[in-house]
Computed example of a mutant assay.
Amino acid sequence: MAERTHIAQQVQQPVTTGRQIIVTSIRGGAGKTTVAALLSRTFNHYRHDPVLTLEADAALGTLPMRLGAESVRWSLADLAQIARPSMQLTDITGYLVPLEDGGWLLPGSQGRIGARVDIATYRTVMVALRRYFGVTVVDCETLPGEVARTALDTAHARVLVTPATAEGVASTRAVLDWLTSLPVSVLSSTVVALTVATPHAALDTTAAVKQLRETGVEVVTLPYDRHLAAGGAIRTPLLCAQTRQATTSLAAEVLQRAAGAR
């Protein structure tokens, strides 16, 4: 109980300026949108300042569906064209989707095939919205996309989603080794989310966590959850207790790193 209280306090910790957290992966199907939605629901549950969840993966992304958005009117590109420093929060929220459990959503597209999010659009929106929201969770495109690489450089913290497979762990280890070679290291502000997609995973997750932690990052394992595997809108009461606990731990880990970033 004391540990859970401590983790909850970490998620609730105050931040001086808007903290931007990106969620990405090295391949599709790793579960990054699911992880972004879980973090969104967790921050909205625990925090009292405004939380924004933003989709920077416009390829018919499923983030609005995962968050239970019934309709989408405006997209990231639309907001980039009208965002001005003089705008108030009430002006901004008119272009966002209110979420039922609190917080706001900005989709990457309106369900159009071929909709694009380029670096200029991403930078414009992220700079414009930073001062309005205590925490922004970004469901980013997969690496090595240009927007994903830009987001790696500019975010306060990063979640790298890894499927609990031998190939997924090996590829992610290679990415972590690459991150250590960058001129400005982002490894210290990166957390790996190891996602288990089947009830009988063949991978030894304990060994996988140990292997990934050798690079210096923290790793949080998200267990198989029948509700998540079914797809559709995520309903927190339907998640198993282990998933809720792991998600809260992940939110605490990544926010601790984001809060300490410049």
Rank of each mutant, 00 (worst) to 15 (best):
A151T: 09
E141M: 10
G108D: 05
N44C: 15
L176I: 13
A202T: 12
P85T: 06
T93H: 03
P107S: 00
G103Y: 02
A261G: 02
A56V: 13
I92R: 01
V159A: 04
L39V: 10
T17K: 09
G114F: 01
A30C: 08
A56M: 15
P98C: 05
A259F: 01
L39M: 11
A59R: 14
R84V: 03
L194W: 10
A164V: 08
R73E: 14
T247R: 03
D49I: 03
L160C: 01
A166W: 02
L76A: 04
P14T: 10
D153S: 15
H227S: 06
E218H: 11
A83D: 14
T90P: 00
T205E: 13
E55R: 03
R84L: 05
T121N: 05
Q242V: 01
G18E: 04
V169W: 13
G168C: 13
A148Y: 03
I22A: 07
Y122R: 00
T90A: 12
Y224F: 14
E218K: 10
P98K: 08
T124R: 15
V147T: 14
L228Y: 07
M1T: 11
F133H: 05
S188D: 15
T236I: 14
H45C: 08
V97W: 03
A37Q: 07
A151P: 08
M1D: 11
L187R: 06
A230P: 00
A164C: 09
L239H: 05
R116M: 09
R213Y: 00
A148K: 02
Y132D: 10
T206R: 09
L179S: 04
I21D: 03
M87I: 03
E100W: 00
T33W: 00
T53C: 12
V209K: 15
L194S: 07
L106Y: 07
V137I: 12
V169P: 15
P237M: 10
L176G: 14
P237V: 11
Q256Y: 04
A246L: 09
D177N: 14
S189Q: 15
G94Q: 13
Q211V: 12
T136H: 04
T190N: 05
H6Y: 07
E218Y: 01
T90Q: 13
A202P: 00
A261S: 14
W178A: 15
E218V: 06
Q20G: 00
V51W: 03
M1W: 04
Y46A: 14
V23E: 02
I92E: 02
T165A: 07
D225T: 02
C240W: 01
L176R: 10
L38R: 08
E55I: 12
T165S: 15
A174I: 05
T165R: 09
T17V: 10
R262H: 10
V219F: 00
E55P: 13
R131P: 07
E218R: 10
G134T: 00
A174V: 09
V217C: 06
D153T: 15
L129W: 12
L143E: 07
R27K: 13
A193V: 05
S181C: 11
P64Y: 05
I113M: 12
Q211P: 01
P107T: 00
H6V: 06
R73M: 08
A166E: 08
L228P: 06
I92G: 03
R66D: 04
I26C: 08
L255G: 07
L105V: 06
E3G: 02
L106P: 05
Q110G: 04
R158T: 11
Q88M: 11
R244I: 02
T206P: 00
A148L: 01
R112M: 13
L76S: 04
P98I: 04
P14N: 09
T180C: 04
L89Q: 12
